[in-house]
Nucleic acid binder design. Structure first.
Lengths: 191, 191
DNA sequence: TTATTTTCTTATCAATTGATAAGGCATAAA
DNA sequence: TTTATGCCTTATCAATTGATAAGAAAATAA
């Protein structure tokens, strides 16, 4: 985790152990649920090894993948405490996964203790912002075929690790539609 | 601006005037461009009075409205300096507008001067996160008709202030399609 | 290995949305 | 007033995507 943090802040040994204290390590098998949707449980996560998917659940029971979170990555609804709303997403393991988890409140409490943690919080929020910005733009401006091409470019490592129907769900289309898109793209390659 | 900030941080008079110093006031007429897309100009904005639209421009020249920013609201790509990319959006006034503008670099520099500004930056980022979260969810899970209904609920004040075709562009559909949707919704009302 | 389950593909038809063109309606300008 | 201009609606047809069902292929279990 420390290495991943280095992109955002320089923590002293002391600061880092303060941070590490609020996290607990967990291990889950593939397909295991970590958080069910519409639970009011606010936590933040760091994936050490493996792969998780964060997903929305609509009123009509349809799941949409919100993000895939692989090793050495932080995740979590950082601003959730500012809302009265329950967390809207669920979390499920796609692979056997080891991760660290902390109560969001504990993380936020650190802001009061040391300036460095507030900075960490800001950097984390900004990192999430950038990813969401790209995602919004993609959903708004690109057609499904283009979104898939972009996904392959930006997340090439995930293609082989994530079932096709989960990628389709991430792109906002059905697995059937994605299968069609792949066929069309393959056709073009021949010429 | 001070009143709007109160939701996020308590600034002393001194801190507030430090902040105010980096902002300049501007006035634009309706339809006037404030920032053209693909310019590498990183600024943050506070709209005092009026209404702005922030929009993406695709490779093929199609505009998509990213956000409407009305009075007493902050806006700007807070995390833009973390990227080497140019700012991707443009800004245009939809009404005669008075706004404050600051160089993003000046704003970020304040983080080093006073803890309160770092906190402000974090709160601002988190506020943006929440809005983007809702937007992503809407684009991913809802059909155009539902997105329009949600828009009317969440931004009822904007319906009369923003031309229909700009709302359509915000929803990711054409103005023709939005017109169809409105007709269908009106039909349902009769029964 | 075989059997079972999961994932992916294909076909068909329906629903949604886009593209284009034409016209209506309002507001503002001449 | 008439004339523009901008915005909205409607109609038609095309393209995209969804829904469903059936089967193929791949992965996993027995």
């Amino acid at each position: 985790m420390r290495k991943a943090l280095a992109d955002w802040v320089d923590l002293t040994d002391n600061q880092f152990s303060q941070l590490a204290e609020i996290f607990n390590s967990r291990t889950v098998k593939a397909k295991q649920d970590i958080l069910l949707p519409h639970t009011s449980v606010h936590k933040i996560y760091f994936v050490c090894d493996g792969l998780l998917r964060f997903y929305y659940l609509s009123d009509r029971g349809v799941e949409s993948n919100k993000a895939f979170v692989a090793e050495n990555t932080f995740a979590g609804a950082l601003a959730a405490l500012n809302l009265d709303l329950p967390v809207l997403y669920g979390i499920q393991a796609l692979e056997p996964t080891t991760y660290l988890v902390a109560r969001l409140q504990d993380f936020v409490d650190l802001y009061e203790q040391d300036y460095a943690f507030e900075r960490l919080g800001r950097k984390f929020a900004e990192w999430l912002l950038i990813r969401k910005e790209l995602r919004t733009r993609s959903l708004l401006q690109q057609q499904a075929k283009q979104r898939y091409v972009s996904f392959m470019q930006n997340y090439s490592g995930l293609i082989s690790r994530v079932p096709q129907y989960h990628i389709a769900s991430y792109l906002g289309i059905t697995e059937v539609s994605l299968s069609r898109i792949k066929r069309e793209l393959a056709k073009k390659q021949h010429f």
